[in-house]
Amino acid sequence: MIRIRNKEIVIFEGETLDLVYSQLQEPYWLIVSNDPMYKNFGFSKEASVYVKKLKVNKYYDYNAFRISTYCNYKGDLYYLENIKNETVILSPEIKTKQKLGIHIYDDRRIELSYEKFINEVEEIWEERSAIEGFRFEVEPIFFIKKTE
């Protein structure tokens, strides 16, 4: 099954970890892991995870980026929102909504079986974008499935 990652991530000590924006008291980026070994790198235990807080508006020498996953399905562009319980959820992008005659603020989504999706989808890719305050050293487009 294809794994989608619509989120922010950071490469920390060679590992890919979640990066979460928090504004509970003041704005922070939180690097999150389930692995207790990160206590050795200044992470603290919060609830059931280990967290390293990074103040916003500073520069950190970590490679970090935001990932959004898209696909070409039946000739149109969709945001690949989720894959759960053998169901794929697609959200049409603005140009697709306009082509289909759907208002741009209409939140309709397409739900289809994973098997049908895999058989009919033309391409799937991640678009990776920079996050202010971090290095950005990855390819901006990563194809998960590409037509020849």
Rank of each mutant, 00 (worst) to 15 (best):
I11D: 00
I11V: 08
F12L: 07
F12W: 10
F12Y: 06
E13M: 14
E13Y: 07
E13V: 08
E15L: 03
E15G: 02
T16A: 13
T16F: 06
T16Y: 07
D18P: 00
L19T: 01
V20C: 13
Y21G: 03
S22L: 03
S22M: 14
Q23E: 12
L24Q: 07
L24F: 06
L24N: 11
Q25T: 08
Q25C: 13
E26F: 09
E26Q: 10
E26V: 13
P27L: 01
P27F: 02
Y28W: 05
S33I: 02
N34Q: 10
P36A: 04
P36G: 14
M37N: 04
Y38A: 06
K39I: 12
N40C: 12
F41E: 15
G42K: 02
G42I: 10
F43L: 14
S44V: 11
K45T: 09
E46F: 10
E46C: 00
E46V: 10
S48P: 01
S48L: 07
V49S: 02
V49I: 13
V49W: 07
Y50W: 07
V51M: 12
K53D: 03
K53C: 05
L54H: 02
L54E: 09
L54D: 12
K55Q: 12
K58E: 11
Y60V: 04
Y60F: 05
D61W: 05
Y62Q: 01
N63K: 10
A64I: 01
A64S: 10
F65K: 00
F65R: 00
F65D: 00
R66L: 15
S68L: 08
S68N: 12
S68V: 10
T69P: 00
T69F: 01
T69A: 05
T69I: 06
Y70Q: 03
Y70P: 01
Y73K: 03
K74G: 00
G75A: 08
G75W: 13
G75F: 07
D76I: 04
L77E: 10
Y78N: 00
Y79P: 00
Y79V: 05
N82R: 07
I83Q: 06
I83L: 05
K84T: 07
N85Q: 11
N85H: 10
E86M: 06
E86N: 15
T87Q: 13
V88Q: 01
V88Y: 03
I89N: 12
I89G: 05
L90W: 04
L90G: 02
L90R: 02
S91L: 06
S91K: 09
S91A: 11
E93M: 07
K95Q: 09
K95D: 05
T96A: 02
Q98Y: 13
Q98L: 06
K99T: 04
G101M: 08
G101W: 10
G101D: 11
I102F: 09
I102R: 03
I102V: 13
I102A: 04
I102K: 01
H103V: 08
I104H: 02
D106H: 14
D106W: 09
D106I: 08
D106N: 04
R109G: 08
I110D: 03
E111T: 09
L112F: 06
L112R: 01
L112W: 04
S113A: 08
S113Q: 15
E115F: 04
K116R: 09
K116V: 03
I118F: 06
E120Q: 11
E120R: 09
E120D: 12
E120G: 01
E120S: 02
V121N: 10
V121Y: 11
E122Q: 14
E123Y: 12
E123N: 11
I124L: 03
